[in-house]
Design a protein around this nucleic acid. Sequence first.
DNA 1: TTGTATGCGTTATCAC
DNA 2: GTGATAACGCATACAA
Lengths: 323, 323
Amino acid sequence: METMTARPPTSSDVARLAGVSQATVSYVLNNRADSRVTEETRAKVLSAAEKLGYVRHAGARSLKTGNSGLVLLPLSDVPFGPLATRFIEDLDHELTALGYTMITYGARQARGMAAARAWAELRPAAIIVDTVKLTSASVGLLRKAGVKAVVGISPKPSTLVPTLVADQTEIGALAARHLRSQGRRKLAVIVPREDGLRDIGLDRREGFGAGLQIDLAFDPASAQEVLPLLRDIDGVFAYNDEYAMLLMSTLADAGIRVPDDIAIVGADDLPLARLLRPQLTTVALDISGTAAAVVTFLASLIDGTPATPPRLWTTHLIERSST
Amino acid sequence: METMTARPPTSSDVARLAGVSQATVSYVLNNRADSRVTEETRAKVLSAAEKLGYVRHAGARSLKTGNSGLVLLPLSDVPFGPLATRFIEDLDHELTALGYTMITYGARQARGMAAARAWAELRPAAIIVDTVKLTSASVGLLRKAGVKAVVGISPKPSTLVPTLVADQTEIGALAARHLRSQGRRKLAVIVPREDGLRDIGLDRREGFGAGLQIDLAFDPASAQEVLPLLRDIDGVFAYNDEYAMLLMSTLADAGIRVPDDIAIVGADDLPLARLLRPQLTTVALDISGTAAAVVTFLASLIDGTPATPPRLWTTHLIERSST
DNA sequence: TTGTATGCGTTATCAC
DNA sequence: GTGATAACGCATACAA
């Protein structure tokens, strides 16, 4: 027989079953040290809670205590690869260890005020979000709603909020340095045409420095079109490994040799890109340890202690046979 | 001057500023039709709320009404590609349209009771989760906590909960049918060695039917090792496009021609795989419209109406030059 | 050591 | 049309 219509068990239900007061249940379940409870009553409470399948009501708890323990991560519109996924997982792990609950929210949620209102309803303790989704007004709203830490992610530091700087320029710079060190002088840099990727591409291009900018959509036809632009080029930074793969496949078709005619550098060190022949030289991003630093940073902000945002990653070049 | 320590504005604050009662504020903000409010007071309330930056407290609301409007999506441990990402985005969009708030939870959250307790704290209206993360006990706990719709995702229907069946066998079957139709008779099927992928691979292999099973790790060295197994093979279903890429790069190195010596079929129709030469024949999954159907299904369950879970995808074969 | 009482922000039932 | 008022589940100051 199913108990379909039964109301979820409350701490009062647990108290009734255990033969104690509701307050005692709360003490036991929260391990409050200041109120020492007999081992016996403690056991009674625990077993009663177990038997009833009692689970705290997070809403009621947050209403009472004024903090939800939630950390909100509205997902970026930019499709993310293994790196970002790994970072999010690490973040979740670290936050869980500190008793926070990490939640990701809306893949394509509207930005600005509407989004901020939706976020604020949950009364999160912290929120980490792509800076482009924030406005001065929306940050104000979030702060008013009691969000202790509003942290941005962005290629450049924001004036609005403390920002985790995802510095794209150093990626481009590293690629340029390597190509130059290989004696390449006639350089080009790929910038994706795709919406979300374009801004990142422009930043990588900025870091790359002097060189021909080639706008490229992720599409063989587009690659065919830009092929003539490479006539006088002997080194290309391809934005990332995926665009590098696109480029290399097109160059191969055209009979242009890599690295003999043109050297190619990718970025992100995708596992899939290791299958390429020649193997792709790439700028790898190292994010290990970042999540822990970010969580420490968040905790400081939540406590009201000022703190400096950590670096999101370090970069290093992996030289393979495409350069 | 910042108002750092100010308590978030409540509906009472709005009422005070607007010069009305707190109940009236609630009526206005919820557009309750039964209590007709003057257009004038309505405007006063709205402007007061605006000025204060008032945002509802989701916790208090869910405490009072007994439903949170939350739909929880504990993410699967299996790394997901563009397809799953798209599905999640669609789902979010559809749910938002119906007034629900979709939230994804913990990338590597523990399964079983511990996870269920964490989920239940949020008192979601519905939860969609990989069936392997559920146990009979944890489903019971969730139901007791008032979760109206506990929906599984799994290759096979579950006895525990209504299940969105991600039928992998038909993918394998389609690949086999195509290879046979091309006159290939000595068939093999790749099964990934990787943890999360292996079960999916075994299901695809089951659907494939007769043929040599080749266990393969996503790694060029592993591909080298299995190369001898392909000596007598003339058609391979490579599990998915990524493994197909691995395989094709290894075959190319060994001087084995595709499709002349061996025909290859991938799956998932990855954009990146279109760069391959020869171009990869693949089993494509179509998920358009699925999210809407799933949301309709969820809504039924939440209303207490029994309903049949929709199919997650349809499959079709895209023939290119690798077969 | 445990119980009583209160209020967090909200919605909803009832008088007015 | 609008305003008191109660209750949702919980944590905690204080009383016992």
